[in-house]
Write a protein that binds this DNA or RNA. Sequence first.
DNA 1: TTTGCCAATGTAAGCGCTTACAAGGCGATT
DNA 2: AATCGCCTTGTAAGCGCTTACATTGGCAAA
Lengths: 342, 342
Amino acid sequence: MKDSPRPTLSDVARVAGVSTATVSRCLNEPGLVVQATRERVLRAVEELGYTPDFSGRALASRRTNTVGAVIPTMENAIFARGIQAFQEALTGAGVTLLVASSGYDPEQEAQQIQTLIGRGADGLLLIGAARPASTYDLLKRRGMPFVLAWNLGAGDDPFVGFDNADAAARITRKVLEMGHREIGMIAGVTAMNDRAADRVRGVRNALRDAGLDADALPVIEAPYSFEDGSRAFEALMQHSPRPTAVICGNDVLAVGAIKRAKAMGLAVPEDVSITGFDDIDIASFVTPALTTIHVPHRRMGTAAAQLLLQLIAGEQARRRVEIDVELRMRGSLGPAPQTTTG
Amino acid sequence: MKDSPRPTLSDVARVAGVSTATVSRCLNEPGLVVQATRERVLRAVEELGYTPDFSGRALASRRTNTVGAVIPTMENAIFARGIQAFQEALTGAGVTLLVASSGYDPEQEAQQIQTLIGRGADGLLLIGAARPASTYDLLKRRGMPFVLAWNLGAGDDPFVGFDNADAAARITRKVLEMGHREIGMIAGVTAMNDRAADRVRGVRNALRDAGLDADALPVIEAPYSFEDGSRAFEALMQHSPRPTAVICGNDVLAVGAIKRAKAMGLAVPEDVSITGFDDIDIASFVTPALTTIHVPHRRMGTAAAQLLLQLIAGEQARRRVEIDVELRMRGSLGPAPQTTTG
DNA sequence: TTTGCCAATGTAAGCGCTTACAAGGCGATT
DNA sequence: AATCGCCTTGTAAGCGCTTACATTGGCAAA
């Protein structure tokens, strides 16, 4: 195999017997080139196996048709799904996506943003709204279009998301409606994760509104895994009085909790009710199926792509897109058990 | 917010009162610049909020410290996990990752490879071994280092993977050992997916080796979702004689199958045994837990990164890395039920 | 035939950066 | 005091591409 250096525009030009400008036009504005020439050029392209060099093109044309996304991690189904839809929408518009992950670390996120800017991203997708002011400063000083997703944005920052606190409050009210008064929560790790923190806040708000003591709510934080959900559930069951309902910050924790409940000989929902959040595939597949908040992740990704493309194009657009989420009532939430004191 | 054009190297140079070469050196080889100058330059960088432009740098230096990966889809936990590890390993080496997805379409894959080459990727990660010869030609003509993952590579192509057929045969032998003779299979979609196809082949091989009629194996292909696994299971149960064991091409299908089995009033594994493949988190969380093939996806991602970096650096390296997978025996596989004819 | 215009192509100047090479300055050596 | 050599910095030539502008040729109109 010949390890040939990549052919360049001028190689093509030489082989085709035209100028580099003509080759460039052939590739970008074929209409400007007469058919015979075009064919000659394309033949040369074929023959040499020419592929345009992105750097050269970006440098000369000052645009990249590229947007970047910085997500906490790919190992979370909700991001994977949303980003996949985001990407599909972009591809449809001839734009490529650069994905970077921050591991939930704001410093790494800032670093990745720098990298993406350096790579000429025309716009950025960021997750959630909580990040240092310095990061927002950077973005705005650069005039870099960006869209926040998976949460509401502060100020007038453009976003495509939903109110996590409000949704958490909604599911909490449902739990209360079912007669539960001893409630516990298994939250995602809230440090550097405004979505997780907002969900805790939402639960507390709902309790307070119902005249209960929000500060008394036992909350255990757990990383995003079945196993950690299980462990947290077991710990929560040690709390006295024992919760009759456990509200989980996401479906994965909830599934872990259900599993442990069964292992502990507790019937769900007869002995203890469990709720989730996100409505990922597995939510409807566990037994009992999870009562949860349905979030249309794909739709959110698509809408985010549309908004970002509009911002980049400088078009007028509704900058604050609230996505509807809805409560999905399923088997894991039932009426509170009769207490002996009741 | 001033929508200032990005500051360039020469802006920094002007502010710091030095030449562009010195600024460049400050950023890339700080050792070559005397402390006083360095401080002055860094202050200017800070003040202007300068970020190096990737295109300019790539164009001038002929290297990008970038590798690309083309995966079928992000919406599959096994890729998400492997790629996450792949990325972490790269980041540790100061290399950035560009991810593209092909939607299991070889043409799109070739397209994405072109794009990544155009973007100056120093190397590529590709999934599986099956793709048109033209794609391999392109890669080799360019002298582009690449690593295949999630399967064995053909010829002497470098890979980090495992033998899907062999692993599938292994789990099939186990099923046979448990006394099952009426076996069915729910496979992933095999078109354009050599891993899925190899798994089917492996099952057939094992049956043949056991003196059974491999062609008689009922196989239903299903997309990667719980729901499709369920549907396929139900269809398979119409087959006569009804299978006492269902081998699934992946864990997601298997979980779907288990759920439907229960819904149909079939006990697992008493009435029907079900096996999976991949050992994703949920495999140990379903009831009964899945007997499956454990694949260390993260380890594979890390190893792939190491190999790719070595190839790029032109170092001598073992180019064919076979990853160990192992059978995880859990509750979903039990002895074949007594038949009336037995 | 001459003129004018337009379509097709060529010329060449960068885009922001790196890096050979040149130049300058200073201390050490003789 | 003269010379050398090294350390620091500057000069300038591209890297592969796009694109404003110049040039050419052909054809229609006069």
